[in-house]
């Protein structure tokens, strides 16, 4: 049994009988920073509009309509925020005791999935580039395989060295 296996109950589509999920990883949280900051800026905009519009003579008559527009605006922002969260959460790397599965969701109707048997892994390499990547411990993981798709590439994954060690452990013990 590999030393670093973490028992996980994360089940997924097309999981084979007896196949045990070892790790489910997503991109580092830092990829969400840009969209969340943008949402925060957009969320403050109605307050700026209020600051300028509240002095106008017509403000009282249009207050109801402005509040309705603001409610709809925040509803739109809420949907946009969770659309970005959905894309983040559904882009996963699932490592089981038998294979590595890469799920990519790029939209509501744009999805791809690739899998690789652990036995076909030939080489795993890690690339950490940049100041923020070094500080927050994220990087790119490249897996060389013996299959038809000879490279698996995962970008901006957290703790890529640990994932590399985990894959090596599983391969050694299989």
């Amino acid at each position: 049994m590999p030393s670093r296996i973490i028992n996980s109950s994360n089940s997924f589509r097309n999981q084979a009988a007896g196949e045990q999920t070892v790790l489910v990883s997503r991109r580092h949280w830092i990829v969400l920073l840009g969209p969340i900051l943008a949402m925060a800026v957009f969320a403050l905009m109605p307050f700026f509009v209020y600051h300028y519009v509240s002095q106008a003579s017509w403000y009282g008559q249009w207050l109801g309509a402005l509040c309705f527009a603001a409610a709809v605006y925040y509803f739109l922002l809420w949907d946009a925020l969770f659309y970005n969260l959905m894309l983040y959460v559904l882009n996963t790397i699932v490592i089981t005791d038998k294979r590595i599965i890469k799920n990519e969701q790029n939209g509501f109707f744009k999805y791809s999935s690739a899998e690789l048997e652990i036995e076909k892994v030939q080489d795993v390499s890690v690339k950490v580039q940049g100041f923020w990547a070094a500080i927050f411990h994220f990087g790119d993981l490249e897996i060389q395989t013996a299959g038809t798709q000879n490279k698996f590439y995962f970008d901006r994954v957290p703790d890529p060295e640990k994932i590399k060690a985990l894959i090596t452990d599983i391969k050694t013990s299989s």
Partner: peptide, 24 residues
């Protein structure tokens, strides 16, 4: 909004792996 929200909710529940997508 209902359609958009339904798509987001459905994707979280149907395709999410683990507990995080369900909580979201």
């Amino acid at each position: 909004f209902l359609l958009y929200g339904f798509f987001i909710f459905y994707h979280f529940i149907r395709f999410g792996v683990g507990g995080k997508p369900k909580i979201l």
